[in-house]
Design a protein around this nucleic acid. Structure first.
Length: 503
RNA sequence: GUCGGGAUAGCCAAGUGGCAAGGCUUCAGUCUGCAAAACUGACAUCACCGGUUCGAAUCCGGUUCCCGACUCCA
């Protein structure tokens, strides 16, 4: 029996506003699409949170034994900036400012995005398609929507006919809106005259004279509209109907709503069965966003070089911090919270390192109850992760296992009572969940693999042992304190042995 | 204004009907030459007011406050 049959996954589906048992269209296979970044500037920590959230889903589904095709796009056509349709596109604007080709801007920030994803140990998606690489497909998609009667051409642009669509389908089903209310609340916008209706949105925009990104189409030279690429690329790589579509909460409307409309307008199918939305990272209760000026780059985070940061935090500390809350809750950033996460993360890693030093389990008379208690923490962690990817709850159970491991290390007699098969199963998945599902790495381990440093440390440890043996505590304390000041923590262990960790 | 999400200890954060997870902090103890780490223990009338129920943080009604979307946003 596969893990996914043992621990069936439930997902909160934004479309139905309830948690549902996850049933993929094809047994054992999952198609997942996530809206990626628009590459016109550096990603900030809020963006990272979303991609880490979906990285967990990808990793967990893989861990359970699903074959997953994970598609995450790169939006390299700038969405319009400024009011309505008169604005420029972000990438073109940036290109003009920096006197670069738009594709140079795109390349620069795509590289940056990949660097950040690697830093935070997010797995690369199976396919990472770009909007500019799918102009032809987008044009074909528009043609079909027009043929189905849900779009119209006007002066070189093509608009989606929301009212017409709403007669046959329900526009607003995802975000809980209805078009009459929306209409009465629409702000007065300039440059709307081309549209038949303010609710309509562009599928294809005519390129004005100075517009840098432009392609020929049946309707003239222009560029694809705001929401089209995701409909087109998810359909191309995952099919007209697929399993999971994810993105940040702020994309729910209008982006995802428009996507569903486009999908149905073209293919009569709504795309994803399960819509999943990650919540925002907040700072002092407010959304982290460029316009708020409260965002910082991952680089600033690591160095601590930002007014919001008391000091730097490692990428794994931050990843762990994010996983201590549920993806659908807002997560408030603070130095205090990050420092708490850092300690918790180190605690988890320390117990994990201890596993190697443990003697064999089950060498005494096995206590079934204690063995099962241990096992249940891992089983519960699986159930937690299967319950809408509740990493916060799963981590609570991992900490329980941590405590057990620490106890076994200090009292091997306790480990002797644990059934060996159960213990091995627990450790296998304890490591598996931490490394493969949560995607954490042991940052201090990397330093310990440095043989030269380790050699030097052994010399110092030997010196301290001798000093302690001859009761020269002034010297033994100096060795310990000076190493501490240099960022290395010495620990005395039972039997006179010493170990060290690097901060 | 419309739609949606929140309010849980000093901090972060799980928990959607049955004695309030977990991490950090603080305090006490064990261990230690002293530490650190680890282990053990202590620390919450779940924003407010009503209602339903044998039983409510959880369900229903109301109040206050906060946030997000409705413009590009992860």
């Amino acid at each position: 029996m596969s893990l996914y049959e043992q621990y069936p996954v439930s997902i909160y589906n934004s479309l139905n506003k309830q948690k549902e048992v996850f049933k993929p269209i094809h047994e054992g296979r999952v198609g997942m699409y996530v809206c990626g970044p628009t590459v016109y500037s550096d990603v900030h920590l809020g963006n990272v949170r979303t991609f880490v959230s979906f990285d967990i889903m990808f990793r967990y589904l893989l861990y359970l034994g699903y074959k997953v095709r994970y598609v995450r796009n790169i939006t390299d056509v700038g969405h319009l900036v400024g009011d309505a349709d008169e604005g420029e596109d972000k990438i073109a604007k940036k290109a003009r400012l920096e006197e670069l080709e738009p594709m140079e801007i795109v390349q620069k920030y795509t590289n940056g995005f990949h660097d950040v994803m690697r830093l935070f140990n997010a797995l690369p998606p199976s396919i990472e398609p770009t909007a500019t690489g799918h102009i032809v497909e987008q044009i074909e998609f528009i043609k079909q929507i027009i043929a189905n009667g849900y779009a119209y051409e006007k002066d070189g642009s093509v608009y989606f006919d929301v009212r017409k669509y709403n007669k046959d389908h329900q526009y607003g089903e995802l975000s809980g809106r209805n078009i009459d209310e929306m209409l009465s609340n629409t702000r007065e916008l300039t440059g709307q005259d081309q549209k038949n209706d303010p609710l309509d949105f562009a599928l294809w925009k005519k390129a004005e004279g100075g517009h840098l990104m432009r392609w020929p189409s049946p309707w003239g030279v222009g560029f694809p509209g705001w929401h089209l690429e995701c409909s087109v690329m998810s359909t191309k790589y995952l099919g007209e109907q697929f399993d999971i579509h994810g993105g940040g909460m702020d994309l729910k409307f209008p982006h995802h709503e428009a996507e569903i409309a486009q999908n149905k307008g073209c293919c009569h199918k709504g795309g994803a069965n399960y819509w999943v939305h990650g919540n925002m990272l907040t700072v002092n209760g407010r959304k982290m966003a460029k316009s708020e000026g409260n965002g910082f780059t991952p680089e600033q985070l690591l160095t601590g070089n930002h007014k919001l940061l008391e000091r730097g935090y490692s990428a794994m500390t931050v990843r762990f911090f994010m996983l201590m809350s549920h993806y659908a809750s807002t997560l408030d950033f603070s130095n205090e919270a990050l420092q708490a996460a850092e300690k918790g993360y180190k605690r988890l890693m320390a117990s994990l390192s201890l596993v190697k030093k443990l003697p064999s389990a089950g060498t005494g008379s096995v206590d079934e109850q204690k063995s099962n208690e241990l096992k249940q923490h891992i089983e519960q962690a699986f159930k937690d992760l299967s319950d809408d990817f509740n990493t916060a709850k799963a981590i609570a159970n991992l900490f329980e296992v941590s405590t057990k491991i620490n106890t076994y290390y200090q009292q091997p007699a306790e480990l002797a009572k644990i059934d060996a098969d159960i213990f091995n199963w627990v450790i296998t998945h304890f490591r598996g969940i931490i490394f493969d599902v949560l995607g954490l790495k042991n940052e201090t381990d990397l330093a310990q693999n440095n043989n030269v440093l380790d050699g030097a440390m052994q010399v110092l440890i030997e010196l301290r042992k001798q000093a302690k043996f001859s009761k020269n505590y002034a010297l033994s304390d100096k060795i310990r304190d000076d190493l501490k000041a240099a960022g290395i923590q010495l620990k005395d262990e039972k039997g006179g042995e010493m170990s060290y960790t690097i901060d």
